[in-house]
Design a protein around this nucleic acid. Sequence first.
DNA 1: GCCATTTCGATACTCCCGTTGCGTAAGTCC
DNA 2: GGACTTACGCAACGGGAGTATCGAAATGGC
Lengths: 209, 209
Amino acid sequence: MTTEARRGRPRAEGADARILDAAYEVLVDRGYDRYSIDEVAQRAGVAKTTVYRRWPTRDHLIVAVVAKIQDEVPVTDTGDIRHDLVTYLEAIVAGLDRMRRVGRAMEPGDRSAGLVAEIVAAAARHTDVGGALRGLFARRNALPLALLASARARGDLKPDAQPGVIFDELAGAIYYRLLITGEPIDGDYASRLVDQVLAGARTPHEEGT
Amino acid sequence: MTTEARRGRPRAEGADARILDAAYEVLVDRGYDRYSIDEVAQRAGVAKTTVYRRWPTRDHLIVAVVAKIQDEVPVTDTGDIRHDLVTYLEAIVAGLDRMRRVGRAMEPGDRSAGLVAEIVAAAARHTDVGGALRGLFARRNALPLALLASARARGDLKPDAQPGVIFDELAGAIYYRLLITGEPIDGDYASRLVDQVLAGARTPHEEGT
DNA sequence: GCCATTTCGATACTCCCGTTGCGTAAGTCC
DNA sequence: GGACTTACGCAACGGGAGTATCGAAATGGC
C-alpha cells in the first residue's frame, strides 16, 4: 500500500533514515534543549523544508527517534508471578534510566527525568503524538497484563484481582518517582513494589469488608 | 529577613503580583504554547526585562503561577483508612483534571495531560524548578503518609506494610494513567486502587513466602 | 515529447525566547 | 549634597521554530 506508484517526484531515497540518524546524533551531542532542526537538516545533508515535509514539528521527529531506539522489554513466563513481575519492572527501570540520560551529562545526584519528561510533554501537546504513544504502550503492556491474567487463571492470584489496576500501580509507582517526586529508584524498589501489591496492606483478620 | 533595607532602587511595588496575574490570564486565554512573555509584560504594564529579572525563564514563571493557584488537598483522618485514602485520591484526581484543562478547549474524548505534562517537563529541564516541585510534593504527601503510618500503628495495616511504597502505588497509578497511557480515570478508579492495595493480589493460602 | 504532479534545495520571513546595552529613576550610605 | 547601587523602560540583537515562495528536478499519464 505504501508502494503504490504515486504521481510526482518520488521522495529522496534514504532521506528519512539519514534524517532520523542525524536527529539521534544531534540529540545525543547537544541534548534536547539545544537540539535544532537546522542542525539536523545540515547533518543529514538535506534542506530544512525536507525535514518538515516528513515531521511537522520538532517534537514529532524526537518521538520518532525515541520510538526507533526503544528496545523491546522482554517478558518471561516462568510460572512464578512474583519473579516475572520483578524482572519486567527492572527492565522498565533500566530502560527509563537510559532514556532520561540521553544527551545530558548527569551529575551523581541529578534527579531530572530528562528526555522521558520531554516525550510526555510532546504527547500532551500533539494529539497525534499522544495517540501513537498510547498505542505503543497498549501493545507493550499487553504481555505483562496477560501474565497477570494467566496467574489469576491458574489460581496464584485472587479471583477478584484486577490485572489492569495492579499493573497501573506497579508501573505507575516507577513513573511517579521518576517524573514527580524524583525519589531515587534503588535496586530493590521493584521487588518491594511487587511484594506490597501481592501481599496487600490490610491485616488478614480484617479482610472481608 | 526579606524586609532588610537593601541598597539601590527598590523593586517596583506590586510588580510581582501584577506579572503573576497577567501570566495567569495569558495562560488561560492563549494556552501554554501561545503563552508569551512579551504579552505577559505588556498586560502587566511592565518591560520584558522586568519580568526576566524576577523569573529567569518562561517555565519558572509558569510554575510560579501554577504553584500559586494550587489549592491544598485536604486530608481527613476518620480512622477508616480506606475511606480516607479514597477521599484523598479523588481530590488529587479532581485537581489534576482541572489543571490539565487550563488554557485548552478540550474535546470530550481528549486525553491530553495538558498543563500537567508541561509542568513535569519544566521540572525536568531546570534543576531549581525540579527541586522546588519535589519539595512541594514532599510537604503535600507528608499527610497521607502519616495517615498510613498511624493506621499501621493502630493495627489496621500489617506491621510490614510500607507507607512509602503504598502511596507511590496509589498516586503513581493516577499519574500513570494521566501522563502515560491516557486511559480514562473514571469515578470509582480511586476506590478500586485502594481496595486492590489493601486487599493484596496473592491468594491467602500462599502468603508467607 | 509534453503536461500535471510532487519533491527538492534555497532563501526570506514572522514570531518568540532570552540577552545585552544604555540612559534614567529611586533609593542607601557618608 | 554627592557617590554608589540597584531597578526601571526601551531598543536592539542572535538564535531557533515553523511558514511561504521560488525555480529546478524527477516521476507518471497520455
